[in-house]
C-alpha cells in the first residue's frame, strides 16, 4: 500500500538514501512535498501536484511562443520558458537562417519534440531538437499534469504498451505532461478517454489491471455494436 505524506512528515532515518522531495535534518529524512512515499530505490516523495520544472535530459513537447532572433522562445508547459537556438535547426547546417525568416522553419504555435540540453542556475533553459522533432497536424495533443506522467507510462512501460496496442494509436508522452496521439479518430477518442481516466485515478492501486479490464470491456462492447 502507498503512504501519503505532507510537508514536514518524518519518513526514515536512512539519511544516505534521501532522494527527491525530501530533506534531512538532525539525522532524519522528512518530506518537502505533499505526495506518496516511494522507498524502492531511494527514499523519495512522488508529488501529487505541482508545476513542471525541466531537468537536463528531459524530452518535452514544446510550442513555439515567440520568435526573437536568434532564438525561438518555446512554451514547455512550465513556469519557465525555454529557448531553441537557430543553429539547432537541422536545415541550418547547410544554409544560414536569416534574420526575419525564422518563421518559415518553425512558426508561432508549431509543436516540437525537444530535449532539454541545459538548465542553468538562472533557469535559462536550452533545447535541442529531436531527430523527428516535427509534430504533424493529424493528431491530438492532450495536456495532463506532469506528476501523472509516470502513471500513464506505468511500471517499465506496461501501461503505455497496453494503450498503444489496444488503441492502435501512436502515442508519445513527454516529461512535461504533454501527450501526442496519432491514429484513427475513434481510436484517438478511446486513447484520450483512457488517459484521462488514468489521470483521475492516478493515485489508486491496481490501476493497470483496471485499465486493462476497461479496455477489454470496451473492445467487446464495440464488436457487438454497442458501446459501454
Amino acid at each position: 500500500m502507498y503512504k501519503v505524506v505532507v510537508p514536514g512528515d518524518f519518513i526514515s532515518e536512512e539519511t544516505n538514501r534521501a532522494g527527491e522531495s525530501t530533506y534531512v535534518e538532525e539525522g532524519k529524512v522528512y518530506a518537502t512535498r505533499y505526495g506518496i512515499v516511494d522507498e524502492r530505490e531511494e527514499i523519495k516523495v512522488v508529488a501529487l501536484s505541482g508545476k513542471y520544472v525541466p531537468v537536463e535530459g528531459d524530452v518535452v513537447i514544446g510550442r513555439i511562443a515567440e520568435i526573437s532572433f536568434p532564438y525561438w522562445i518555446v512554451d514547455i508547459a512550465s513556469p519557465y520558458d525555454a529557448r531553441l537556438h537557430v543553429s539547432e535547426f537541422a536545415g541550418a547546417s547547410d544554409k544560414k537562417i536569416e534574420f526575419g525568416y525564422m518563421n518559415s522553419y518553425l512558426d508561432l504555435g508549431d509543436l516540437i519534440m525537444a530535449k532539454v540540453m541545459n538548465v542553468n542556475v538562472l533557469m535559462r533553459i536550452e533545447l535541442a531538437l529531436k531527430e523527428d522533432f516535427k509534430i504533424g497536424s493529424r493528431g491530438r495533443l492532450i495536456e495532463i499534469s506532469h506528476t501523472k506522467v509516470p502513471r500513464v507510462i506505468g511500471r517499465s512501460g506496461s501501461m503505455i504498451r497496453m494503450l498503444k496496442e489496444k488503441c492502435k494509436c501512436f502515442i508519445f508522452i513527454a516529461k512535461n505532461g504533454r501527450i501526442w496521439i496519432e491514429g484513427r479518430a475513434d481510436d484517438m477518442d478511446l486513447a484520450s478517454e483512457v488517459i484521462l481516466k488514468i489521470v483521475s485515478e492516478a493515485h489508486t492501486s491496481g490501476l493497470t489491471d483496471r485499465i486493462a479490464d476497461f479496455l477489454d470491456s470496451f473492445g467487446k462492447g464495440k464488436s457487438q455494436g454497442k458501446i459501454g
Partner: peptide, 11 residues
C-alpha cells in the same frame, strides 16, 4: 500551499 505541490519544510 501543500495542495499546490509547493516544496515546504513543514506546515
Amino acid at each position: 500551499l501543500a495542495d499546490a505541490g509547493i516544496p515546504m519544510r513543514d506546515l
